[in-house]
Design a protein around this nucleic acid. Structure first.
Length: 766
DNA sequence: CAATTCGGGATCTGC
DNA sequence: TCCCGAATTG
C-alpha cells in the first residue's frame, strides 16, 4: 500500500492534519467533516512513514463503539494498525490498573462497580441514609472523581458546605478499597495518581506511547485531562480532535474548557479546522446551524456542505405520541416500498423511556429494528444476580456481590445475618490487611476463604449456618471447576440454558446456584422472560475462553461495554435503528427522525441557561447525524408517568427560520388547535431570561434550599389558562436563581423563575 | 426470616 | 403506570 493511496481524496486541511507531526495538534472538526477518516488515516500514515512503530500509538475514544470502528478502519488502511492501542479512556485506565493496581491495594481481579453497586456499598457504609440520598451522594462522588478530588481534597474544593457528603465520600472510598474493587471514576483518577506518584510508571508509559490521539476531546473531563498530561512527556506527540458544539456530557463532568483552552495548556499548538461537511445536504445543515447559533461561548466555525441542497427537512406535529409512532411506521414502510432499506432509518429520542412505544409498534408492524445501547440489559435483576456469582468467584472480597447473591434463592440468610457475616469477614480481612506486608496476597482473602476457614462465625441461626455452608461449598466447587476447566454438563436445567466455552461454565453456575430454577419459576408465575435474558448472557459469555482469564475478560466486557455482543454481530442486518441522541455521537444515518421535540422532553431540563445550551448542542448533534433526510416530530400530548401530559413544542423548533423546513400540523384534529403556537408562557419566560448568562456556581452541587418569594411558596394553588389548575411543588435557589416547580392537573410539571416571570399564573385563594 | 400489602416517587443522558 | 422500599403480619 502506497502513501499516495491512503491520502487519496483528502481535502487540503484533512491532508494537513494527517501529515502534521511534532508540536501538539488540535483538530477542530465540525460534524461530518471526516474526522474519523482523518484519525484513522493518520494512524496508518504515521506507521507507513515509520514515524513510530504501531504499538507506540495510543488512540483513545469515549465509547466502545467508536473504538471498535476506529480500530477496524485503521486496520483496513494498514494491517499493522492492529498493533496500536485503540481503547476508550476507561478501558485504557482499567488496563493500567490491572498491571499496577496492586500498588494501591486493588485485587488483580478487581471488578468495576456500576452506579447501582456503588449505591449499595454506600448504603452499607452509611446505613442511616436512605437509598435516594445515597444515589445523590454517589453522583456527587463520581463528579468529584471527574475532577480528581480525593475525599480530603473534595472537602477543600467543590463541596465544602456539605459535611455529610464529605463523610459519605470518605466512608465510601474506604469501604470500596476494602473490597479491592473500583468504580468508573477510579478508572481515570487512580491511573492519574499512579502517574503522579511513581516516576517509573510514568516513564514507562511515556516511552511506550510516543503518539497519543484523543477523539471527541470536547467531552473530556478534568481527570482525563490530567491523565493526558501525565502520559505526555516532552517527546510525545499529542493530537486531539473535537467540536465544541458537540459537547453533550456535562452531566458527567465533561469540561468544554479543555478544548477551549487547549492552546493555552499546550505550547506551540497547531490548530487545524475541518469545515467541509461531507455528510449532510445543506438543507439539513442550515437547520442545525440555525439552532446552534443561539448558544453563547462557541469557538465558532462555518460548516459548509459539499453535497448540495437536498430535500427540505420536515417538522411534524401530532395529537399524541401514538400518532407520532404511527407516522414513523408509515414513513418507513412507504420509503421501504420505494426502495430504501430499513437500515437507512434511525429513530432518535432524548430518553430511553421513549423507545418502548417504538419497539412494540415496530414489532407489530413487522419493521425490523435494532435497539442501540440498551443499557438496561445489564441492570436487570436476573443478570446482576448471575454476574454477582462470577464477581465473587473472581474477587473474594466483593462485598456487594456477596450480599446480593448469598440469599438468592433463599438460604435463610436475611439482612440481619448478612450484616453479622459481613462485619465478621471485614474484620478478619482488615486485620490481615493491616498486618501483612504484601497487599496483593490479600486479594484472594475474603468472604469465601474466611467463612470456610474460620470456625468462630458469629451467632447465626441453624438454618442460616446450613445455608451458608452450602453456599460456600458451591462457590468453592465452581472455582475448582473453572480452574481445572472441567467439561460442565448441566444436569437439571431441562436443557434450557446452553452455551459454549465460558458460556458452558456460566450456564452451569447459574443452574448450580439455583438461579435457573428460581427464575424459571418466576417466569411461569409472573410471565416474565428472565430465563431468556440469562440465555442472552450465556451467549455473550460463549465468546470467551473457559478460564479465569476468560472470566475476567467477560466481566470487564459487561462492566465497560454495555451493548450486547450478540447485538453487535447483527450490525449488518437490515433494521431500523432505535437510539438515544447521546448514543448517536459519532454515528451517521441516511434518514433521521428526531422524536419528542417538546419542552420538558427535548429540552428535558430548561431550569438553567447552561442546561438549555447543552440541550441545544444535543439537538445540533441529532440534526447533523442525517445525511439525506431529516424529520423532526413533536406531540401535543404525551403519555408518561402513567398520565397524559399536555406538551408544548420545543423552543428549538421555533429557532428554525421559517422557510428552512416544511411544516405539517396533524395536531389540529379533535379540537386541539394551534398546538404549534401554544407556547405563550414559554416565550415570555424565555424572553425574560434570555441574555442572563450564569456564573458557574459550585455551591449548586450542594442541596438547594427551600425558599419563598413574595407570595410564591410551596403548596400555593394556581391557575393557568393554558394548563388549568396546579400546585407549587417547590421553590428553591438553584445556582443563584429562584426556581419554582409547578405541578399541573394535566400531569405536566413546569419550572418558572418567579423573579422574572410567572406567565399568566394566578394564585388561588384557599 | 419470608411473604404480603401499601404508598409514593420515578426516568434523563452513560463510561 | 409500574416498581421499589418500608411497614406489617405470620
Amino acid at each position: 500500500m502506497s502513501t499516495g493511496k491512503i491520502l487519496d481524496g483528502l481535502n487540503e486541511s484533512q491532508m494537513e492534519a494527517v501529515c502534521h507531526t511534532g508540536s501538539p495538534l488540535l483538530i477542530l472538526a465540525g460534524a461530518g467533516s471526516g474526522k474519523t477518516r482523518v484519525i484513522t488515516t493518520k494512524i496508518a500514515w504515521l506507521i507507513e512513514n515509520n514515524y513510530v512503530r504501531p504499538e507506540e500509538i495510543l488512540a483513545v475514544t469515549f465509547t466502545n463503539k467508536a473504538a471498535r470502528e476506529m480500530a477496524k478502519r485503521a486496520s483496513n488502511l494498514n494491517l499493522l494498525a492492529g498493533a496500536a492501542t485503540i481503547r476508550t479512556f476507561h478501558s485504557f485506565g482499567a488496563w493500567i490498573l490491572r498491571q499496577y493496581g496492586g500498588m494501591l491495594g486493588l485485587s488483580e481481579n478487581f471488578r468495576i462497580y456500576d452506579t447501582d453497586d456503588a449505591v449499595t456499598l454506600l448504603k452499607k457504609a452509611m446505613p442511616e441514609i436512605n437509598r435516594q440520598t445515597a444515589k445523590i451522594y454517589v453522583n456527587m462522588i463520581s463528579r468529584a472523581k471527574d475532577y480528581c478530588y480525593t475525599p480530603k481534597m473534595a472537602q477543600k474544593n467543590l463541596f465544602l458546605q456539605n459535611k455529610k457528603f464529605d463523610e459519605a465520600y470518605e466512608k465510601y472510598d474506604a469501604r470500596l478499597k476494602q473490597t479491592g474493587n473500583v468504580d468508573f471514576g477510579d478508572l481515570i483518577m487512580l491511573p492519574v495518581m499512579l502517574l503522579e506518584k511513581y516516576e517509573h510508571i510514568r516513564h514507562r508509559l511515556q516511552m511506550r506511547y510516543k503518539v497519543i490521539m484523543v477523539d471527541e476531546y470536547q467531552d473530556s473531563n478534568i481527570a482525563q485531562f490530567k491523565f493526558l498530561t501525565g502520559l505526555k512527556g516532552e517527546q510525545n506527540y499529542l493530537c486531539v480532535v473535537g467540536d465544541d458544539d458537540q459537547s453533550i456530557y456535562k452531566f458527567r463532568g465533561a469540561e468544554v474548557k479543555n478544548i477551549l483552552q487547549f492552546e493555552e495548556n499546550f505550547e506551540n499548538t497547531k490548530v487545524i479546522r475541518l469545515e467541509k461537511n461531507y455528510r449532510s445536504f445543506s438543507g439539513i445543515l442550515d437547520v442545525a446551524n440555525c439552532i446552534i447559533k443561539n448558544n453563547s461561548g462557541r469557538l465558532g466555525k462555518s460548516l459548509e456542505s459539499v453535497r448540495g441542497e437536498g430535500k427540505k427537512p420536515k417538522v411534524n406535529f401530532f395529537l399524541n405520541n401514538n400518532a407520532e409512532v404511527e407516522y414513523c411506521v408509515r414513513l418507513i414502510k412507504d420509503a421501504v416500498k420505494k426502495g430504501t432499506a430499513f437500515s437507512d432509518w434511525a429513530i432518535l429520542y432524548r430518553t430511553n423511556a421513549q423507545s418502548l412505544a417504538f419497539e412494540t409498534e415496530f414489532a407489530k408492524s413487522r419493521i425490523p429494528y435494532r435497539l442501540v445501547g440498551n443499557v438496561r440489559f445489564y441492570e436487570r435483576e436476573e443478570i446482576k444476580d448471575a454476574l454477582a456469582i462470577f464477581a465473587l468467584i473472581a474477587n473474594d472480597r466483593d462485598e456487594v456481590a456477596f450480599s446480593r447473591i448469598v440469599n438468592k434463592p433463599s438460604r435463610g440468610i436475611g439482612a440481619k445475618t448478612q450484616e453479622k457475616l459481613i462485619a465478621f469477614v471485614r474484620k478478619a480481612v482488615y486485620e490481615k490487611f493491616e498486618s501483612s506486608e504484601n497487599l496483593k496476597e490479600n486479594s484472594e482473602y475474603g468472604f469465601i476463604s474466611v467463612l470456610s476457614e474460620k470456625t468462630e462465625v458469629p451467632d447465626i441461626s441453624k438454618k442460616a449456618r446450613k445455608g451458608l455452608k452450602e453456599f460456600i461449598s458451591m462457590i468453592v466447587e465452581l472455582r475448582k471447576k473453572l480452574s481445572f476447566n472441567e467439561n460442565f454438563e448441566v444436569s437439571d436445567n431441562n436443557g434450557l440454558l446452553t452455551g459454549s466455552s465460558l458460556g458452558k461454565f456460566v450456564s452451569f453456575a447459574i443452574s448450580v446456584a439455583g438461579l435457573a430454577d428460581y427464575y424459571k419459576n418466576e417466569d411461569n408465575v409472573s410471565g416474565t422472560r428472565k430465563i431468556e435474558n440469562l440465555q442472552e448472557l450465556i451467549n455473550t459469555a460463549s465468546l470467551y475462553e473457559s478460564s479465569y482469564e476468560g472470566l475476567r475478560e467477560f466481566l470487564e466486557h459487561v462492566e465497560l461495554d454495555r451493548t450486547l455482543q450478540s447485538e453487535n454481530d447483527n450490525q449488518e442486518n437490515n433494521a431500523v435503528t432505535l437510539i438515544t441522541v447521546h448514543n448517536t455521537k459519532g454515528l451517521e444515518f441516511n434518514n433521521v427522525v428526531i422524536t419528542g421535540v417538546e419542552e420538558g422532553v427535548f429540552p428535558l431540563d430548561s431550569s438553567e441557561i447552561e442546561n438549555i445550551e447543552e440541550e441545544r448542542r444535543l439537538m445540533y448533534v441529532a440534526c447533523t447525524r442525517a445525511k439525506n433526510e431529516l424529520y423532526i416530530t413533536a406531540c401535543a400530548k404525551r403519555f408518561r408517568y402513567g398520565n397524559w401530559s399536555q406538551m408544548i413544542k420545543s423552543r428549538f423548533i421555533d429557532e428554525i427560520d421559517t422557510g428552512l423546513v416544511e411544516i405539517e400540523d396533524f395536531s389540529m384534529q379533535g379540537g386541539n388547535k394551534n398546538f404549534a403556537f401554544k407556547n405563550k408562557v414559554q416565550q415570555k419566560i424565555r424572553s425574560d431570561v434570555s441574555g442572563f448568562s450564569k456564573i458557574i456556581d459550585h455551591s449548586a452541587f450542594a442541596k438547594s434550599q427551600s425558599v419563598t418569594y413574595q407570595n410564591w411558596k410551596k403548596g400555593v394553588r394556581v391557575f393557568s389558562s393554558d394548563r388549568g389548575f396546579g400546585i407549587v411543588k417547590s421553590l428553591e435557589i438553584n445556582a443563584g436563581e429562584i426556581v419554582m416547580r409547578v405541578q399541573f392537573e394535566t400531569g405536566e410539571q413546569k419550572v418558572y423563575m418567579p423573579e422574572f416571570s410567572t406567565g399568566d399564573l394566578e394564585i388561588l385563594k384557599t
